[in-house]
């Protein structure tokens, strides 16, 4: 590729990145507005649950959980679209760097199942956690959703481990290790400070949500370091 083509490609990539940032800023602003409004009504006991009952830590976890749920649902839609649309499959930024290759095409159905299962389990978990009144006489359904969702995650995760190559497995392993090394000390300190009365206690749900956030950040960091083209909708140069 000539210097001029490389420069044009870089300019296009930067413009796409900035456009993506602007879109997320707008979405973040809209989300923040409605989240703030909801928190205000929840604080006044008008949202069907009271902040003084669930606590600020769980309220924040719930907000983060909603964002995670949105990410997983969008991921499910994108990977589902990648199955039938090669242009979306070729867009590295949309498909987590997988692109459009034989291995990737085998992975997309499993990724769709993984994120559908994750979304179902997380949604059910959030309702169980903060709106237990909704689960009365329906405990079996919610438990079934959690078990089914986690079973889908486990099975598709196992299949993905064998479908994707050693490079993606290395990213997974490093991201898991990094998020573990960050989360464990934080969890240990929080448990100790809560028990000693220095901080409010956190629930398992809080820890689970925060661990997911830390894992997503760790995965993005590790994947970006190993495969910078993942952040570009134009993919890699085939130099």
């Amino acid at each position: 590729m000539s210097d001029k083509q490389s420069s044009e490609r870089r300019t296009k990539s930067i413009k796409s990145f900035i456009a993506g940032i602007l879109v997320f800023m707008v979405l973040g602003g809209i989300t923040g507005y409605f989240a703030g409004s909801w928190l205000h009504t929840a604080d006044q006991g008008e949202a069907g649950l009271r902040l003084d009952e669930i606590g600020w830590t769980t309220a924040i976890s719930l907000f983060l959980g909603i964002i995670l749920l949105a990410i997983y649902l969008v991921s499910a839609v994108l990977f589902g679209a990648a199955i039938i649309n090669p242009r979306i499959a070729a867009n590295s930024a949309m498909t987590g760097g997988l692109g459009d290759g034989p291995g990737s095409r085998r992975a997309y159905p499993m990724l769709l199942i993984f994120y559908v299962g994750y979304s179902a389990a997380l949604a059910a978990l959030m309702i169980i956690q903060v709106l237990p009144s909704l689960t009365q006489n329906m405990q079996g359904i919610y438990l079934g959703a959690v078990i089914t969702g986690t079973a889908m995650m486990a099975w598709s995760g196992y299949r993905l481990w064998h479908i994707l190559d050693e490079f993606f497995r290395a990213i997974w392993i490093e991201a898991c290790a990094l998020s573990c090394f960050i989360s464990l000390p934080i969890g240990i300190i929080l448990m100790a400070t809560a028990k000693l009365g220095f901080t409010t206690s956190i629930t398992a749900f809080d820890f689970f949500v925060w661990y997911q956030v830390i894992y997503l950040i760790a995965y993005s960091w590790v994947a970006g370091a190993k495969d910078p083209s993942m952040l570009s909708p134009l993919g890699m140069d085939d130099a």
């Binding site: 760097g97 997988l98 692109g99 290759g101 291995g103 990737s104 994707l164 190559d165 050693e166 490079f167 993606f168 190993k226 495969d227 083209s229 993942m230 890699m236 085939d238 130099a239």
Partner: peptide, 11 residues
């Protein structure tokens, strides 16, 4: 039998 990303990362 690896991904193109793997080749790119190797190179």
């Amino acid at each position: 039998d690896v991904s193109r990303q793997t080749i790119n990362a190797l190179e």
